[in-house]
Design a protein around this nucleic acid. Sequence first.
DNA 1: TCACGTTTCAAACAAATGTTTATAACTGGA
DNA 2: TCCAGTTATAAACATTTGTTTGAAACGTGA
Lengths: 219, 219
Amino acid sequence: MAQNDTVTRILDTAEVLFAERGFAETSLRTITSKAKVNLAAVNYHFGSKKSLIQAVFARYLDPFTERFHRALDALEARHGGQAIPLEELLETLAGSVLEVPAERNSLKVFMRLLGLAYSQAQGHLRRYIQEEYGGVFTRFTALIRVATPELPDSERFWRLHFMLGSVIFTFSGLEALRDIAEKDYDEHVTVRDLVRRLRPVVVAAMQAPLPPSLNAQEA
Amino acid sequence: MAQNDTVTRILDTAEVLFAERGFAETSLRTITSKAKVNLAAVNYHFGSKKSLIQAVFARYLDPFTERFHRALDALEARHGGQAIPLEELLETLAGSVLEVPAERNSLKVFMRLLGLAYSQAQGHLRRYIQEEYGGVFTRFTALIRVATPELPDSERFWRLHFMLGSVIFTFSGLEALRDIAEKDYDEHVTVRDLVRRLRPVVVAAMQAPLPPSLNAQEA
DNA sequence: TCACGTTTCAAACAAATGTTTATAACTGGA
DNA sequence: TCCAGTTATAAACATTTGTTTGAAACGTGA
């Protein structure tokens, strides 16, 4: 189909350019010329640039959330109501994230997009992602709660965001960091390498000793 | 002085707007109108928008690097050539970061700007920061290296960036996160609270067990 | 007071942006 | 074949962008 071809070509080109330069820094003309598509095609098929951005995310997040929900279903079934260990939860999350874009060989694009979703202004994007995909995140954190009963709720809340920051920050700045790492340590780092490196760090961080009591004030 | 007043007003306004919306999303007209300054003033005093962005960073990073260097001098002198414990290095870093913007009460702006420096495209910014302030970071990582001899160089490199991500992400999204935490856990979180919570997490993350060997491939 | 360098200001500039329009080309079923 | 409906295309549109210009206002030392 011709329209499908155009739509797909726009999405393929847009996601790469967005990941490389950000949303505001990527013009529709850059996208359409690189995709060999007429300028008006974006507004015709997507309506607006905002909608194009959301469509780029949906193409990744829709399959991801479905896979992740199914993986969590299986995990819960396997443990039959018992608490699921932290490592397995993290493993399942990482697995679902890694699976999705493997087909298009663009995991790094996916990660970079997630980073942009947080760091770029684009209020509409955060709202869209929260409303559309907030549910699966809520489900995941509820399971994490069961897996880490020793943590006070507020402490777990903050530590989850510490780790979320690690992941998003690292992947969204991946290109730059990779260049440095490659130059200094002479090894090419793949996203899978980073996930492997992240695993023990995240587990250790979640299980770190509690900070000194809230009331103990010192200079 | 009038020119100083104009320059300062531009910088004060620009840093807030940049932090809120990003660089590309903030126009010179928005800055100058909010700062009650003529549009041409930016190009007159700074030369270009790029230079303005760099100047915004310099106003934070210049005092910070100087303070941090002095603090590291003192720390090294105190240990007289002996290895400095990881905890003390982190403490010194945290202290220097917290000190600088305290005067202008804009720690969150500082943090958000640091986050943008990494996540936004703006190649010139990364180059500028690297060339201008790479030295102090190199010095710090060299000390961290001595404090964590058990870590392979590349592993330490990545863990440092994991933790950098935690800090920048958390503080740059502090406003939103604080609201949630306050609502859900009924406690007001100060920046110092977060630093206290971060300390054991960062230490545990740096001391986490090494990931399985690079060559061990599994499904 | 004068003159000179600095700073401000309103206006204009060229370029780039997202979007719309009107027309053409194509498509598949009657 | 012919005709609706869909898609593609080129052109134009109104804004917005960073930057430049030239003149006015200002400040300061002679």
